[in-house]
Design a protein around this nucleic acid. Structure first.
Lengths: 144, 144
DNA sequence: CTTGTCCTTGACGTAAACGTTAGCTTGAGT
DNA sequence: ACTCAAGCTAACGTTTACGTCAAGGACAAG
């Protein structure tokens, strides 16, 4: 008898700091499909919770709900047809490349911020050492 | 005499594969401020181009234009007031943490995809080795 | 000087992702 | 049995980020 921890809609909403409406909206868009209780309340399983987490993670990277729906579709393919699985694998490969590209971009952004930070810090030291001098040129531009 | 390469709106639009309208929209929202030609055409400098690239990069990570505006405000602080610079540095620190967090998350997503991929690949091998057997259980769940 | 292409500023339209209100039901607690 | 927070559906409202005309100026080519 697996006591499989379950959740109410507001429990999840609180945990992930979103509104119940948001969760219901995801259901409308068929991204999640909780069971229902006797009185028609939504019951979220641990798996549902995991899925919600995936949805939110996707959102944080600017994926649309539609794109997320696709990705999710991939994670719960019915595991029966060979062709299906092959397509899923191909899709996964594509997504992996995308994600690795994004990681690269984030590294660039990180570098930009670090550079700006250094420049600011340098300028700050200057300003503090000599309490008034001439203005200086403008070495600008960011990561290509 | 610095010939400072300039760009028209459609040049940038084509380069980054967005519409001119989109660029004008960013201007409305004060994320970019090109000079104007004699005939009131927008003229984008190399710096403007760099800024546009930053905007688009931000978008790819799901930042709203408003958030991007804040970040950008940071990159071109007027470099004069000590307090200003200190605030900018603090803001930069925050953003850095955020970005590093995102990189971590992407790693998790990458792992999820890799795991799913392995599972699928395994299943595929099974299906191909024996061309019909009994169905099997369900080892599921993703990265916590 | 006309034509064609690109540019300009409005102004209205729209899809995505929820927010909000209304009206009614459920079910845990006393 | 009563209360009342928490759920439910249905429907309309809102914000963000542009798309899409409309009506006209700019400018290189012929």
């Amino acid at each position: 008898m697996p006591h499989e921890k379950n959740y109410s809609i507001s429990e999840l909403a609180n945990e992930f700091d979103i509104s119940p409406r948001t969760i219901r909206f995801y259901e409308e868009k068929r991204l999640i499909s909780p069971k229902r209780s006797k009185g028609n309340y939504r019951i979220y399983s641990r798996k549902d919770r995991t899925r919600l987490k995936l949805i939110l993670r996707g959102k944080r990277f600017g994926y649309t709900l539609e794109e997320i729906a696709e990705m999710i579709g991939m994670t719960d393919v019915d595991m029966s047809e060979i062709a299906q699985i092959e397509r899923s694998l191909a899709y996964g490969e594509k997504k992996l490349k995308e994600i690795r590209g994004r990681i690269e971009e984030l590294r660039l952004l990180e570098q930009d911020l670090l550079n700006v930070g250094e420049k600011l810090a340098g300028r700050l030291k200057d300003l503090r050492r000599r309490e008034s001098t001439s203005p200086d040129p403008d070495p600008d531009d960011a990561t290509e």
